[in-house]
């Protein structure tokens, strides 16, 4: 199996705080990986580096063998738009847009026509069990429903990698479970690689393996044990 994402010697500091101090990570195609660790350990920073959101101070990130940390912001933005999908903890949906329009936004950004975008967006809402909620606005949805809309939006462009940052962080256990189950089913079906940052073991348990970040280091023993 080839690595779809490969990070070598990542270092990243914010002001005087070192968030990452030399991290190596390799993620295989189709793998679901959980990044865990105490808060402030640098797990979100690691996700941002892997996704080409932030550029590491040192080290490289390669996507499908191509280094992405050397690309400029425009090129990385394009990469994120076409090859990556993102789900966050909350507040990622545009409050003025309907669920359908929210899902359609990435397609429009990719140059899709309005009509086609709407059709595909509504397909994905259906897959996430949101039939009948297409015309609701985010504030008219429950937390779990809103997260499912966000997942639909992340997957509608058929990304190679889905990055999820605490996707269940603001949900109760039952809603969290429903969201994770449907997300895992869909990505397994599509063979999408998933990198999920979480501090919740029950969410991490949906992954194939986990990576522990502690004080800016990845626990070596585990990286190899897995």
């Amino acid at each position: 199996m080839t690595a779809i994402l490969e990070a070598r010697g990542l270092r990243k500091s914010f002001d005087r705080t070192e968030a990452l101090r030399g991290v190596d990570v390799s993620i295989r195609r189709g793998e679901i990986v959980a990044i865990m660790g105490p808060s402030g350990s640098g797990k979100s920073t690691l996700l941002h580096c892997l996704a080409g959101v932030t550029v590491p101070d040192a080290g490289t990130v390669a996507f499908n063998g191509t280094p992405i940390s050397t690309l400029d912001e425009t090129a990385r933005g394009k990469l994120r738009l076409t090859d990556f999908g993102f789900v966050f903890q909350f507040g990622q949906l545009l409050p003025e847009l309907t669920a359908l329009d929210n899902v359609a936004v990435p397609l429009l950004l990719a140059g899709e026509r309005r009509g086609t975008a709407a059709t595909r967006a509504s397909e994905w809402l259906g897959r996430l069990g949101l039939d009948g909620k297409a015309q609701r606005r985010p504030q008219e949805l429950s937390g779990g429903e809103a997260q499912r809309v966000a997942i639909a939006r992340a997957l509608v462009t058929k990304p190679a990698v889905l990055f999820a940052d605490e996707p269940t962080g603001s949900l109760d256990s039952l809603a969290a479970e429903a969201v994770m189950r449907i997300m895992i089913d869909l990505v397994r079906e599509a063979g999408t690689t998933v990198v999920v940052v979480t501090h919740d073991p029950r969410t991490a348990a949906y992954a194939d393996r986990d990576i522990i970040v502690r004080d800016g280091h990845v626990s070596v023993a585990l990286g190899e044990a897995a």
């Binding site: 073991p201 986990d210 023993a221 044990a225």
Partner: peptide
């Protein structure tokens, strides 16, 4: 860590 990995595997 080793203990943790075992627990996670179980989960």
């Amino acid at each position: 860590d080793i203990q943790r990995a075992c627990h996670m595997e179980q989960m």
